[in-house]
Amino acid sequence: MAKFLQILVNGISLGSIYALTAIGYSLIYSILQLINMSNAAVFLTSAVIFYALYSSITAGQVALTFILTLIAAGALGYIIELVAIRPIREKGDSNTYALISSIGVKTILEQICQGTFGSEIKPFPTLLAGKYIDLFGARTSAIQIIIIVVTLVILFVMNWYTQHNRVGRGLRALSQNLNACHLMGMPVNTLIGVSFAVGSILAAVSGVAYCMYLSSISISVGAAIGNKAFAATVLGGIGVLKGAVVGGYILAVIESFVAGYWSMSAMNFVSFSVIIIVLIIKPTGIFGKKEQHKV
């Protein structure tokens, strides 16, 4: 029983990490029908930025470092859109080209991080280290609880934002009908830039949270999570924010159980197989809507 609960808790906290990054993918896809591969790289870059700031300027002040990192991540996201995506988008060719451009950005960011940060593992600050609660023999560390709570809060805020905030509603409008927004005179380009910024900020939260969870940071952090988060997005139905979250949790919990009861090698095997199977049964993902193509 203890083992079951422990594994479940591990799965849920990992799921929160996936969910936050997955929302970034889903948000941009909902507006542009573009898979933004650079999201995973932003995940990594934000963690590196946090580390760099914390070890130099803002030593000891987690909250301040965190806020600065979020601002940096948002700016990074906006710049990526401005430089690498917008010019291609505006021309109007198939967005396969924007996809490829985002892959290029991903490679560049990852290589810069690797070159400046190096391959060592360095200790990363965490919150309430060593504190935990024991529920029926399952140990839940404080940081895990914090991650889960923060994720839920963010989801709640995102929901409110897209319903009641002007900019948020703008984003929602964009995802429903991009052309109509142009016609309505909305500042579409700026809003799209904002959506990238929002996605990046979420990825930053996810990245910093993950490193806090592991109490360390190293370059390989981005790769594994990036692919999985992307997979989770599609699993839940790409383009639907709710789906990204659900997909993230489902995938992480499945992985946790497979790793705990079977083996770690089987874990990846199972998660990717599950994705394929679900997509075969429901090609648009769990909550996905069928894309209508105008003839």
Partner: peptide
């Protein structure tokens, strides 16, 4: 790989006296 919690949970169930790690210096810290 950076998340060893599943492996460790599994090992915890077997109640070992010693865990021998053949790993790189990065990994043992995690």
């Amino acid at each position: 790989q950076q998340d060893f919690t599943s492996i460790l949970t599994k090992i915890k169930q077997t109640n070992p006296q010693l865990v021998m790690c053949f790993c790189a210096e990065n990994d043992i810290v995690l």
